[in-house]
Simulated scan of single mutants.
Amino acid sequence: MADSTQSTIDIAADAATVLDTIADFDAYPEWATQVKSAKVLSEDELGWPEQVEFTLDAAPIRDTYVLEYDWDVTQDGTGSVSWHLVRSDLLKGLDGTYSITGSGDTTSVTYKLAVALKMPLIGALRNKAERTIIDTALAGLKKRAEG
């Protein structure tokens, strides 16, 4: 991912709980405040969500888009969840990864995100939007997984 932003958070929950929280897209509007809706469109042969449609309001980025997911995770919940953009009106790229590590009751999650808009946007504004999306998502994921 070129020109990406990333951040890491420690969560007081086991990796399987964190992974289950990430995979529960129906609940995203409850904890990922910029996500107004999320709908699983398809699943892979193992039952993991494969394509998900989101409606996002993270000013200056407001859009409805579809992401395709790759679940490279182990049975204990560690590994990575990656996604890339399938379609959007505003975005020309949205690539991200949750890297999940840890053992026992503590899990570390690193969120890496790269956003590319179809319209020109100053790099500092794009970075600020990425940082806002990441920080809000990680804080919400922590609260939801620990709750």
Results as ranks from 00 to 15, higher is better:
G77S: 09
Y69L: 15
L141R: 00
T64F: 12
L19A: 01
T101A: 13
D95A: 11
K36Y: 06
I133T: 12
D24Y: 01
R87T: 12
D135F: 10
A13F: 01
R144D: 04
P60G: 12
D14H: 05
V73R: 05
I122Y: 10
E45N: 12
A137N: 15
A58S: 11
P29V: 03
V86G: 00
D20S: 04
F25C: 02
D105Q: 11
K128M: 14
D76G: 08
T8C: 01
A59V: 15
K143N: 10
G79R: 05
F25A: 14
L138N: 00
E30I: 04
A129D: 05
G123N: 07
D95K: 12
L19R: 04
H84K: 10
V52K: 01
G123F: 01
V18L: 05
V73G: 01
D10V: 07
V73H: 03
G104P: 05
L138H: 08
P29H: 04
D57Y: 15
D76T: 00
L90G: 10
P29R: 04
M119A: 15
S99K: 13
G96A: 13
T64S: 15
T107M: 00
L19M: 12
S82H: 11
V73W: 05
I61G: 06
T74N: 11
A15H: 00
L117N: 13
T132V: 14
Q75I: 06
V86C: 07
S108C: 01
A137E: 13
L117R: 13
T97H: 09
A16L: 15
D135K: 00
L41M: 03
S108M: 02
G79M: 09
D95Y: 09
R144Y: 01
K92I: 10
L41Q: 04
G77N: 02
Y98A: 12
K143H: 08
E130I: 11
P29D: 01
V35A: 00
P120C: 09
